[in-house]
Design a protein around this nucleic acid. Structure first.
Lengths: 147, 147
DNA sequence: TGAAAATTGTTGTCGAGAATACTATTGTTG
DNA sequence: CAACAATAGTATTCTCGACAACAATTTTCA
């Protein structure tokens, strides 16, 4: 009756990739819930934070700059910036010299939300990673994986 | 002209959560590309593998069992199993005693695909994690985060 | 027993992330 | 200069993941 099913694989929990995936899913849920109160998702925060970061060092910032800096693709940046603009957190206008490009600015409300978000995320992250024994080693391992 | 933008935050790259997220995104892209040839996505694989695993130990498996074991929610399991059924990899039928539940079985084709997928993923994972200095320590840290 | 609570699965909505293809513009170079 | 290549951004499509609401049971326990 029961089909004999024999697979040559370990428990999923023993797989590093599965563990990594589970961990990140949990982290992302936590971040999204933490940011929920101020109406941002994790990814929206990443884009907004990248914009804020870039504005500290550059006169103007294009969508391409944000995409490069945040390691997300330009499609995602395009979508999310439109959403952030609709919410009044950023402004997009044409580049004067390169009419293909869009200059992105942050509004006062955007700055306010971003600052709140940074505080929220800092606290949430501290809670999440407090169980790590050796943070610098863990960071190094992650950096190895991305390098 | 330029708005003075001062934020109290570190480089994103220095943030453990951001690193973790980036790493998993990269891992998942790799897995999806590796599985592409056999027409499975990473998540579909997770569900199918959970089913395979559970069938090794149980007479019958319900969607709820799969959801619990794979740490995905029952809606996802419902959707994906329907897709896998449409592709001929699994069969769903009613539980005889509990008509709310569905019994899920794997077809011969499902077994074949799963075995191929396991081989593909094993190899892809080895490549991805070879840069880790100390795998058991890394695993322990991840387990700490989920615990 | 019978009403309330819990369980199993589905539907639909929204945002994220990837892929392909497209428009419009700018850069390059023969 | 003109043809070709590269770039910036968008539209569309598909799957994943979270969530809320719902139907149809089954379980619980007063």
């Amino acid at each position: 009756m029961t089909k004999s099913v024999t697979f040559d694989f370990n428990k999923p929990e023993e797989n590093l990739g599965y563990l990594l995936w589970q961990t990140t899913m949990r982290w992302q849920r936590l971040m999204n819930r933490a940011l929920e109160d101020i109406g941002l998702t994790h990814t929206q925060f990443v884009i907004l934070a990248a914009l804020g970061w870039l504005l500290k060092q550059n006169d103007y910032v294009t969508q391409k700059d944000i995409a490069e800096h945040s390691n997300t693709d330009r499609m995602m940046v395009s979508k999310i910036l439109r959403k952030l603009q609709a919410d009044g957190l950023v402004i997009r206008r044409e580049h004067e010299k390169d009419t293909r490009a869009k200059i992105v600015e942050i509004t006062d409300e955007g700055i306010e939300i971003l600052q709140k978000a940074i505080a929220i995320k800092t606290q949430a992250n501290e809670g999440f990673f407090e169980k790590i024994d050796n943070k610098s080693r863990f960071r190094t391992e992650l950096e190895n994986l991305i390098s």
